[in-house]
Write a protein that binds this DNA or RNA. Structure first.
Length: 460
RNA sequence: GGCGCGGUAGCAAAGUGGUAAUGCUGUGGACUGCAACUCCGCCAUCGUCGGUUCGAUUCCGACCCGCGCCUCCA
């Protein structure tokens, strides 16, 4: 079983060879908790959760860490605006993030470290960088000297000269070189801060990840993931800090970056204001529908996000759950492994989820045509494959009857109307029967009569 | 200016040097009291122009268009 992954570091797909096949280490950049996350923030969570599942199917132990950044100027601003403390704001939005990620069927990462719980490690790392000549203190700040690292810019494939030519860099007076970035910055009395050798202050943006990776996963990790927009400066600077602190030891073996979610051809982002909050989408679509939509494109591709996309995801899931519903009473026979399955092969090829989903449909179709044990095996296969994607794990009845919005018609009322329609049908009063069906359809409920005369229902 | 990505049916999205998966939608039919579900069938020549090749959507070149990063960003 060979897993191939696209490695940003090499700009090529390559065979995944872990450092230690008994213990895989993966780190993914989590949110800065100053507000609710949008669907673009959810993409890496879903993508790397899927990778987490695949890795667990291949290796005995996978340590997956996803951080919570709970100290940041944006959190300070949010706290100021709301009147709550920084701790209250970050705790509230961290919990909101966990809730949203749960809704999307993401498994809980092995470790969810908080930046504020690793400040001593960050300070220690800065001290080491200063001692090794890679960083310098100036006016209460400590800066990383990018020119001290020959390979700086390698991950993002850019040279120092080119970067500065872009000229969006604000050159602070305390910088020795325009491209140097902040490791530590001073805090005033109103701002949160920690005592350090350079005075009371707080860490720069990139430092936390380096410190938490070192603390929990070691100097060299197998996989580091995040959105494409983090390649520079965030990940480039993480590499710089970590490798220089570790005397050049390789920091990350496989760098993985997911593409953006686009709306009308443009990147969804907070600065453009064209984002959709996960929470708001959940008012209209189930978490599983959102997850399916996010997996409908290969993770490195951009994904065109729209109401259409979500409707399509919902319909596709209806088809798959519809197949499972037909065989509800059939006991599934789970496969021992998925090794020979095209579905699995697709995922092992850099998480080709569109092909994996195609295979899901193929298995479902084959399942409905099969008989006996073969059918039970295909049902088990479909469920096992679905599990690897974090899909199809609920009862079909539950899928079809879940009410997504609060003002949906109740199940009791639906049942009552169905009984009224059954009576009308018995009376051959088809006009009345159709009336009831139209009434329910208007409320978003579709009726399905069976050959036996029973009627089941589902929400659209 | 530097670096990079992409243009495939109405929508979404794979893929391959030998005339293009899959899903959704639409549509024809079977089934149904009528529907829904299900089943059978139909619906693209892959941005443009050149080149290489027996043959290119797939390789090369040019061009057009769109998008991204260049210290807020998943």
């Amino acid at each position: 079983m060979n897993l191939h992954l696209y490695n940003t570091r090499l700009r090529d797909k390559e065979l995944f060879k872990p450092q230690d096949p008994h213990r895989i280490t993966m780190y993914v950049c989590g949110p800065t908790v100053y507000n609710r996350v949008h669907i673009g923030n959810a993409r890496p969570a879903v993508v790397f959760d899927t990778l987490f599942r695949v890795l667990k199917s291949l290796y005995p132990e996978v340590v997956y860490a996803r951080n919570i950044t709970d100290i940041d100027d944006k959190i300070m601003a949010a706290a100021q605006a709301s009147g709550d403390s920084i701790a209250e704001v970050s705790a509230r939005f961290a919990q909101a993030y966990f809730d949203d990620m749960d809704e999307l069927n993401n498994q809980t990462p092995t470790i969810q470290p908080y930046a504020t719980e690793h400040v001593p490690q960050m300070i220690a790392m800065v001290e080491r960088l200063v001692a090794k000549g890679h960083a310098y203190a100036a006016e209460g700040h400590v800066l990383f000297a990018v020119q001290s690292m020959p390979d700086y810019g390698k991950l993002s494939n850019r040279s120092l000269d080119d970067m500065l030519a872009g000229a969006r860099v604000e050159v602070a007076p305390y910088k020795q070189y325009a491209g140097d970035f902040v490791l530590w910055k001073p805090s005033n009395e109103q701002e949160p801060g920690w005592d350090s050798p350079w005075g009371r202050g707080r860490p720069g943006w990139h430092l936390e990840c380096s410190a938490m990776i070192e603390t929990h996963l070691g100097e060299t990790i197998d996989i580091h993931g995040g959105g494409r927009d983090l390649i520079f400066p965030h990940h480039e600077n993480e590499v710089a800090q970590s490798q220089c602190a570790h005397d050049g030891e390789l920091f990350v073996r496989y760098w993985m970056h997911n593409g953006y979610i686009n709306i009308d051809g443009e990147k969804m982002s907070k600065s453009l204001g064209n984002f959709k909050m996960v929470r708001d989408l959940l008012d209209h679509y189930s978490g599983e529908t959102l997850r399916f939509a996010l997996l409908s494109a290969q993770y490195r591709s951009e994904l065109s996000f729209s109401v259409d996309l979500l409707d399509q995801a919902k319909s596709a899931l209806d088809t798959l759950y519809g197949g499972l519903k037909q065989l509800q009473s059939l006991e599934a026979i789970k496969p021992d492994n998925l090794n020979d399955q095209p579905f699995y092969q697709a995922l092992l090829d850099d998480l080709n989820t569109p092909i994996a989903i195609r295979e899901l449909h193929g298995i479902c179709k084959a399942m409905l045509q099969a008989k006996g044990d073969e059918q039970a095996k295909l049902k088990g296969l479909l469920l096992s494959c679905g599990e690897l994607l974090g899909l199809l794990q609920q009862q079909p009845e539950g899928w079809f009857k879940q009410a997504v919005s609060d003002d949906a018609i109740s199940a009791d009322k639906i049942e009552a109307l169905i009984e009224a329609r059954q009576q009308a049908k018995r009376d051959k009063d088809y006009g009345r029967a159709d009336e009831v069906r139209a009434e329910l359809l208007a409320a978003g409920v579709v009726l399905e009569d069976s050959r036996e005369g029973t009627t089941s229902w589902r929400r659209e």
